[in-house]
């Protein structure tokens, strides 16, 4: 009997939580649209190194080339 009661309580709890999430999803999408966070900007290529790291890489390449020529 206790397990039946527990099962019903858990089901009721799950229903409430799932419906809250179902309400929350469109509300959140609405807020995002209103805040206009999703501007149609050119998306950054996230797989490419940033300008800083590019500069660092170039500096490292130059340093390696200099070291190599000095050894010769």
């Amino acid at each position: 009997m206790d397990s039946l009661k527990f099962s019903l309580v858990a089901y009721a709890f799950a229903i409430v939580l799932a419906l809250i999430i179902a309400c929350f999803i469109p509300a959140l999408a609405f807020v995002i649209k209103k805040l206009n966070l999703d501007r149609n900007e050119e998306p950054a290529d996230l797989t490419m190194p940033s300008s800083n790291s590019m500069q660092e890489e170039q500096a490292l390449a130059v340093a390696i080339a200099v070291a190599h020529s000095q050894r010769k």
Partner: peptide, 28 residues
């Protein structure tokens, strides 16, 4: 797909958990 039909999707999913909640007292 969920954003397009949040309520329909959630209600269907809740119905499809019937086995979980019926089996629990049966298992005890």
């Amino acid at each position: 797909f969920v954003l397009a039909r949040p309520f329909t999707s959630m209600i269907l999913a809740l119905f499809a958990e019937l086995g979980t909640f019926v089996t629990l007292p049966v298992a005890t």
